[in-house]
């Protein structure tokens, strides 16, 4: 109860700060040029375009998360496999994909993957934004793999042993006993990873995909006005905050519930 009140106040303060920044920039603009009253109208004018770009950020984040998760779960399970070679390979891939900087991986996929694939004589186009999705899915895969490994290992050994004594096969034990329990512990870090991913999506602007950040910069070029810098960047920051903050709240709520349970 105390905790939620505190966070609510924090949010109120964060919004107040944002409003303050906006107000200061408006006031500054007012003194700087007579056309300043139109600054709000300029923001409104570009808002639809920026929001469309922001939606692409979200789309990229959802797709990368989906691909990264689908690839990361088996990788994580392979990390705890009994087979030595499988286990070693899986953990090497995990370490590699977790430790490389995201922006570097994006450059890598952007510049080194072809834009077209040939499959059975058909050429399949592979546009830049899909390459960006893959570039972001790679580190997600590594992180999901670690989350799965950590989640499974957090289940007490006794659970494995009792499953074995009840004549469950190792596969059955993993899917019927361990994973359902581990899932609860894996959910909060997984959601946290998603929030980090969503906030990493503006990186795709650096490698040339037209997202919300590109649109903000495009608007700044087209209007060519210094007084628009603060309001437009603040607008985009606010969009991300409004999207990511509820996710962070939900993650913490889940974490707390998990703490009570176990």
């Amino acid at each position: 109860m105390f905790e939620t009140k505190l966070t609510a106040r924090g949010v109120a303060i964060a919004f107040a700060a944002a409003a303050f920044v906006a107000a200061v920039s408006l006031a500054h603009a007012e003194t700087a040029s007579p056309a300043a009253a139109s600054i709000l109208s300029l923001v409104v004018k570009w808002l639809p375009l920026i929001f469309t770009g922001f939606l692409l950020n979200l789309l990229v984040s959802v797709l990368s998360m989906a691909i990264g998760t689908v690839a990361g779960v088996p990788l994580g399970l392979a990390q705890i496999a009994r087979h030595r070679v499988v286990q070693r390979c899986a953990s090497a891939v995990t370490q590699f994909t977790r430790n490389a900087p995201w922006l570097v991986l994006l450059f890598l996929t952007m510049f080194l993957l072809p834009f077209q694939f040939r499959l059975f004589g058909q050429s399949i186009p592979f546009p830049a934004w899909i390459k960006a999705v893959i570039g972001l899915a790679i580190p997600v895969m590594g992180n999901v793999s670690e989350i799965v490994r950590g989640g499974v290992l957090s289940i007490p050994r006794a659970q494995w042993e009792s499953a074995e004594s009840l004549a469950f096969s190792p596969t059955q034990t993993v899917f019927k006993i361990i994973l359902p329990q581990a899932l609860k512990r894996m959910l909060p870090p997984w959601m946290n990873l998603y929030a980090i991913l969503a906030m990493a999506t503006p990186l795709i602007a650096i490698v040339g995909v037209q997202d919300g950040l590109t649109d903000v910069r495009g608007a700044l070029v087209a209007e060519n006005r210094t007084d628009l810098l603060l309001p437009l960047y603040a607008t985009l920051l606010a969009m991300f905050f409004i999207y990511c903050y509820p996710i962070a709240m939900a993650t913490r709520a889940l974490e707390r519930r998990a703490e009570v349970k176990f």
Binding site: L6, G10, A205
Partner: peptide
């Protein structure tokens, strides 16, 4: 409150922006 506001604002927006 100010600290919480700072933490939430920086945690929940993209570092690049």
């Amino acid at each position: 409150g100010a600290t919480t506001g700072f933490v939430e604002a920086f945690r929940n927006t993209p570092p690049l922006i």
